[in-house]
Design a binder for these strands. Structure first.
Lengths: 269, 269
DNA sequence: CGCCACGTTGAATTCAGTCAAAGAGCGTGG
DNA sequence: CCACGCTCTTTGACTGAATTCAACGTGGCG
């Protein structure tokens, strides 16, 4: 317990990428230093702009430092499906740079601060730093797990379940990166955006949120939402937190990567 | 027709993994030889069994050689959501071995033949064979893209659109690995399974398939389905084939990996 | 043959969507 | 400072796509 607290204290400092990746395995100071050198100068973008659009060639990997963004796809009929929300510490395309063409867009929801990681830097990390590579890998596994959970939600949960699930996921993710307070966190999404995420109309989202408020499951003020009864929401959605794989590194494997790193270090002497 | 498809399965021997990965970049003979050495002895499983279950620790990566399997999740209410279908050449968990616990199960739909790739072998490939690593990477990117497309389908398409989309995806995937003939391929799924994939009841799936048949969009006999009017199905679903990223390697990047490989080879002399 | 899972069809029900309109919040500019 | 315009939220009445329930058909297999 004390260990965990200690780790959180360390984790909540400095580089948002390091903070995020340390959720997987503890990072050494050397690791942190390396991660600090990976990111280029900071850029800012306003709300409601696209960082990259469907059909474009992927750009250097971007790291979200502050604010909220989304992966989404525009449909022929004018509709939109939001697939993922990007929170501070998330990488915009940890790997998509292998592909010729984006199959979705990334747009800002709030004003954001981002920094870029060059391809060369990333290739260097993959070639020479197995443990950091592993954490980046874990990061994309977690993303994939979130996509699967979204599929479960859209396929098998009703409107109440979907909304309850999304609120839980966002809360857990904000909590993990130290951006929650009690059960409360900043939720800058409109009801239209919630609907476009969950396959619901904004009207219906509104009705369900009203219901949740009346049942004292949540409270909202301005752009802050408080999950008063997380257990209740979990129950409504049937979601199980383990899919986020927080602090669930396969320790045996992490060890293996450490060894690989040690071997590399030896060779280079 | 069934015979012909079956013969195709047998005829298209050679390593299914190599066949799949070569969809991304052309593989050299050395690459193919390496891929051949990666896989262990063949195992067989009957239909309707789990290769691995939710909550278990991921096992050595499995490669599907023949048959069909699925990733799915069982829900507290007894329901099931199928997230992905695994076809010959697909890896069961190219990377999940980094995690402590599976967040979903993998079950067979038909009898299958699989072989395993040991962790050591995989780590070796990642450490020493950048181009193969890149193809494996592309493979998981493609999987992720399919998950996103599923989300779009479940979130924004009606029942007709969802079914049309799934038929197109399966056709394109079978076609890519040489297991289709004209617009026809083996579809061993029950209508219940289709429903569990698309968030629909089997009853409704049945009605829509009937409608598709009457509109001469598809024809079914036994477990073979023929997409008579693929353009029509695409139109109904609004799906765009590019999300599968077939033959869409970022050539510039592939080159980069080749160079990296060359440097490695030099060093080892 | 007879079982059993799967497919098919019809009728009633319901959850969520659609349409419409009014209210609330917020930035901007007069 | 207020008025305007805009977007977002809220609410009600109606509609409809998909579900549910129920029954019957069918095809493969021991």
């Amino acid at each position: 317990m004390a260990d965990e607290l200690q780790r959180q204290v360390i984790a909540s400092q400095g580089n948002p990428l390091a903070r995020k990746l340390s959720l997987f395995v503890p990072l050494s100071n050397a690791d942190r230093a390396l991660l600090d050198t990976m990111t280029g100068p900071e850029q800012r973008f306003p709300a409601d702009v696209d960082l990259i659009q469907e059909g474009q060639r992927p750009q250097p990997v971007r790291l979200l430092l502050e604010g909220m963004a989304m992966r989404y796809r525009s449909l022929p009929d004018g509709g939109r499906q939001i697939m993922t929300f990007l929170l501070p510490g998330d990488l915009c395309d940890a790997h998509a740079f292998l592909l010729d063409e984006m199959d979705h867009s990334i747009g800002t929801i709030t004003p954001v601060r981002v920094s870029s990681i060059s391809r060369d830097m990333l290739m260097n990390v993959f070639a020479n730093h197995p443990r950091i590579s592993a954490t980046l890998w874990w990061n994309s596994l977690q993303e994939e797990a979130m996509l699967r959970e979204r599929i479960v939600s859209l396929g098998r949960r009703n409107a109440r379940g979907r909304i309850a699930y999304l609120l839980c996921e966002l809360f857990w993710r904000y909590e993990a990166i130290g951006l929650s307070k009690g059960g409360a966190f900043q939720l800058p999404l409109t009801q239209l955006e919630l609907g476009d995420t969950l396959g619901l109309t904004p009207v219906h989202v509104n009705r369900i949120l009203k219901d949740f408020r009346e049942q004292h499951l949540i409270a909202t003020r301005h752009k802050i939402i408080e999950l008063i009864d997380i257990a209740g929401l979990q129950d409504i959605s049937g979601v199980d937190k383990t899919y986020l794989h927080l602090n669930q590194a396969n320790t045996e494997l992490a060890q293996l990567f450490d060894n690989l790193e040690a071997v590399r270090a030896d060779k280079s002497k």
